[in-house]
Design a protein around this nucleic acid. Structure first.
Length: 215
DNA sequence: ACCCAGGGTCATA
DNA sequence: TATGACCATGGG
């Protein structure tokens, strides 16, 4: 996948806090829309936990409107700011064991498993595998991940059992999975040169069974 | 006029 | 435990 898609330079953020904000904003939302919201926040000079925490929620809503779900997300950003300050920023978070920090993140209203793990992997730089819709779809279709495994924590455990627990591996792999999913979006009928099929023993049978399904 | 996107929460059964 | 509704915008 590296050879096929190259370096992915994830996560595109100038600071750890900006990364966390992006993690909230991108929930079920196209990254293009998230970028517009981030530009608005930057122009307003509120891309900082201490500043954002004090700003008016209706103002926040207008800035992040392009990212959709703006009312929920504005409230979630405020919650994130409180968490960030209470934990003394990313440096403070780094001092905590991954498991304990993860469960504190999950206590924050509006932060679920994927958002928590994205923050842990890309902002706090803890070696933890991020599971998203792409990951499940791709590996289910390849026949590598049993269809019976659907639950977030179960899917994550599946990969944790099979991959080296390396920050670099987890960061790069998740990024490449997304790159692969985007490259073979629904516009592509079938990919003969699919870098995953070529290294998957079940590839051919999956392809013939699924017909013209991409990924 | 659809469909969906790098989810999460809440109400039902 | 397991579905379904809801949140909202912009791009294909």
């Amino acid at each position: 996948m590296s050879q096929a898609y190259g370096e992915q330079h994830w996560w595109p953020a100038k600071s750890a806090f900006e990364m966390m904000v992006g993690a909230i904003l991108t929930q079920n939302t196209n990254w293009n829309n998230v970028e517009k919201a981030l530009v608005n926040l930057r122009n307003a000079h509120v891309l900082d936990a201490e500043v954002m925490m004090t700003c008016n929620q209706e103002m926040l809503e207008t800035w992040i409107r392009p990212a959709g779900f703006f009312r929920q997300k504005a409230a979630r950003l405020i919650e994130l700011c409180h968490f960030y300050m209470e934990r003394e920023g990313v440096q403070g978070m780094k001092r905590w064991p991954t498991k304990a920090l993860r469960s504190r993140l999950l206590d924050v209203h509006g932060i679920g498993p994927e958002t928590a793990d994205s923050i842990l992997l890309y902002a706090v730089e803890k070696p933890i595998f991020v599971v998203d819709a792409y990951t499940k779809r791709i590996f289910h279709r390849l026949g590598l991940l049993p269809e019976t495994v659907q639950d977030y924590d179960d899917v994550q455990a599946f990969f944790h059992q099979r991959l080296a627990h390396s920050l670099f591996i987890f960061q790069a792999f998740h990024a490449l999975i997304v790159a692969h999913a985007k490259a073979h979006c629904r516009s592509t009928p079938l990919c003969d040169d699919c870098p995953l099929l070529s290294c998957c023993a079940h590839g051919k049978s999956i392809v013939s069974d699924e017909g013209n399904e991409a990924i």
